[in-house]
Write a protein that binds this DNA or RNA. Structure first.
Lengths: 338, 338
DNA sequence: TCCTGGCACTCATGGCTCGCGAGTGCCAGA
DNA sequence: TCTGGCACTCGCGAGCCATGAGTGCCAGGA
């Protein structure tokens, strides 16, 4: 087991390294943090920490830098979440409050997160499955062509064309619209399938085909759109990554373009609080030298989507976690209001 | 005036430099292109070309590289657009054909362009002002709350909430919906304002307020959404930029995140054909070391939006122009079909 | 008038050595 | 268990030099 002081040393190393971006040696440590012991003692502790795999030397006769394992311990045991200051909180609120629609909320959130953390921000659009239906609309565009519009409580709108097997009268259309809405309005998306199962039954035989086409399109929309959208921003912050540029930045940019990868990344975080995945803990290889800080957000108490940032493993974890948590909280509020 | 041979020399320099990424010298030139003259002659020509500002030396005793002015001449006079091969054309078509909706078309286009050109791709969503109305729908969400849905011929959908000054009956709603559609369906967005001017007149006094609110929301939508959306991709290709990485790449990434900048960039290209803006020809400073190749695309004969790529000034202009033109053509086809 | 071969010159690049200094590990003594 | 001391390692940057690609210029030839 690591002694109290060794943990302190580890914390000091992480803090210094995050600040200076340079390997930190025993002498510098004792000077900048009053550990109350001499450099020699710290050296012994560092040797022990290295044996346990928490820190490493880039090369002999250089200072130490934290390993992924070291950051992990730091995040879990040695550092809390740094709360935002009151002015920062006010700034966040102001920035988000001007948003006019869902797209705008997401766009603003991305910019805000990127600015606050000076890292790459990723925001997932509120998910369909976990939200509820506000309204379903059917429009007749041509005799045998309908448009299905789905409006969610988070303000998201999805539309689909429906080609009907047979012409569909205005009366039937109004009927279907009314029945559909009385069934699903206000219900959760995940409940919709069972709720519309028998909806075709009351209709005339000639209309049944169209009704079931509409219903299956609706269900498809729920499923398909589950391949959820997201928005990223702040990629310019990648340039602050380090000196050995292209090698590191390239795979990250590639990973960021793969929505699937990112969604999986955010999705993996099951924790109700802020989740941190450090370096090799990320399944995707291109992100092995990055850390991902993510958290769920939602209009009510429940999370309907995730947001987070991607940055170098050498990041200010407490500050980043604080920013991510605060932004998520305020976005939730904004969504609840609208 | 530049002699025929000097133009040939310039062309050879551009081609070699684009290929090798290294300053090209007189000896290498005579070896790789059969110019029929000796290196010494080429040297004289190069000196002349340098005097005129078409090429430059990074440092004395290195080869020459083209200047922006040199690339300009190359693009304008010395090189055509390289047409895509038949298999390439087929691949483009296949890739785009699977798209299910407008978002998907745009997303696929971005990926395709980025892959083909190995550069950063930018695709603007079909613009509202230049498209036509397919349908306007009004939904009653609450007694005094309506939703306005606007569907364009390019498949784009915009929705807006409308808070009514007074409750609005179903009958009035149906009436308004019918009148609205008979006026604007199939018309160009730019014509809409004059078409709906007097639409409130036939309504009862109590409904007038709501009708004009709806109309002004509609008009706002047309204007506001003129701040058009776009999608970018292939940013990982920026890593192939050069050796002096961070300094160049950072401002580019920043510029790419400013939608306004990009829209202006694409918008500036007035040419009906492929437009090329080279290096300092781009107004935005961050893009001074990049070239932008863009072209309009549209469902009919007319361009409703632009697409293009951003890459280093040292790019394969004929190939890139060919790819951009071909993709624009096929996207236009896809849009026309849907 | 234009092209060519020759020649002297420039200068970026890469390999090399070397001294500096930060940082370490280890050990003996408190 | 901590501390001061000491010898050792080794990355880094400076300085140096040889190399060679590339140039500009010139005088002679077509």
């Amino acid at each position: 087991m690591l002694s109290e002081r060794r943990l302190k040393v580890l914390r000091a190393i992480v803090q210094d390294y995050v600040g200076t971006e340079e390997p930190v040696g025993s002498k510098a440590l004792t000077e900048r943090h009053n550990l109350g012991v001499s450099p020699a003692t710290v050296r012994n502790d560092m040797a022990a920490l290295e044996d346990e795999g928490f820190i490493a030397q880039p090369h002999t006769s250089a200072g130490r830098i934290p390993t992924d394992k070291g950051y992990r311990l730091f995040v879990d045991k040695l550092a809390g979440v740094k709360p935002m200051t009151a002015p920062e909180r006010r700034a966040i609120q102001n920035f988000l409050e001007g948003a006019v629609d869902l797209d705008d909320v997401v766009a603003r959130t991305v910019r805000l997160l990127a600015q606050l953390t000076r890292q790459v921000a990723v925001v997932q659009y509120p998910s369909l499955t976990r939200s509820t239906v506000r309204h379903v609309e059917l429009l007749s565009l041509a005799p045998a062509r309908l448009m299905l519009v789905l409006i969610t409580d988070t303000g998201r709108v999805e539309q689909r064309m429906v080609d009907c097997p047979a012409p569909f009268g205005e009366a039937s259309l109004a009927d279907l619209r009314a029945r559909l809405n009385s069934r699903v309005a206000g219900r959760r998306f995940s409940d919709v399938p069972s709720l519309v199962e028998d909806l075709a039954e009351p209709f005339e035989a000639e209309d049944r085909g169209t009704v079931s086409t509409v219903l299956s399109t609706l269900l498809e929309t729920l499923v398909e759109e589950n391949e959820e959208r997201l928005m990223i921003g702040g990629t310019a912050n990648l340039t602050r990554f380090g000196h050995d540029f292209p090698l590191v930045i390239r795979p990250v940019l590639e990973a960021l373009e793969e929505q699937v990868v990112l969604l999986k990344l955010l999705g993996e975080a099951k924790d109700p609080g802020v989740t941190v995945r450090i370096g090799h803990e990320n399944a995707h290889e291109g992100l092995n030298s990055t850390s991902v800080v993510s958290v769920g957000y939602g209009s009510g108490g429940e999370a309907v989507a995730k947001l987070g940032v991607v940055g170098p493993t050498r990041m200010d974890y407490p500050g980043t976690m604080g920013a991510v948590r605060a932004v998520a909280r305020y976005v939730g509020q904004i969504l609840a209001e609208s």
